[in-house]
Simulated scan of single mutants.
Amino acid sequence: MTTDDSPHTAVVIEDDDDVRDLLHTVLTGSGFRVHTAPAGLAGVEMVRRLRPDVVTLDVGLPDIDGFEVAGRIRRFSTTLIVMLTARVDAADEKRGYEAGADRYLRKPFRPAELRRHIQEGLAAKST
Rank of each mutant, 00 (worst) to 15 (best):
T79L: 01
M83L: 09
L50Q: 12
T28Y: 01
V59N: 09
G40R: 06
L114H: 10
K125S: 14
F109M: 08
R33Q: 12
R20K: 13
Q119S: 14
M46C: 13
R110Q: 13
T25A: 15
Q119L: 05
G71L: 02
V47K: 09
T2E: 05
L27I: 04
G71N: 13
R33I: 01
R20F: 02
A42D: 13
T78H: 12
H35W: 14
I73R: 05
A101D: 05
S30G: 09
V69K: 09
L50F: 04
M83Y: 08
G60E: 06
R115S: 09
H24P: 01
T79M: 00
A86Y: 05
P38G: 11
M83E: 06
V55A: 11
F76P: 07
L80T: 02
E14V: 05
T85L: 03
D102E: 04
D63T: 04
L50S: 11
T25W: 10
D4W: 05
L61P: 09
T79Y: 02
A123L: 07
A101Q: 02
T56H: 07
D5K: 12
D65Q: 01
L80W: 05
H8P: 05
G100V: 03
R49V: 00
T9H: 11
R87A: 12
P108L: 04
G121K: 11
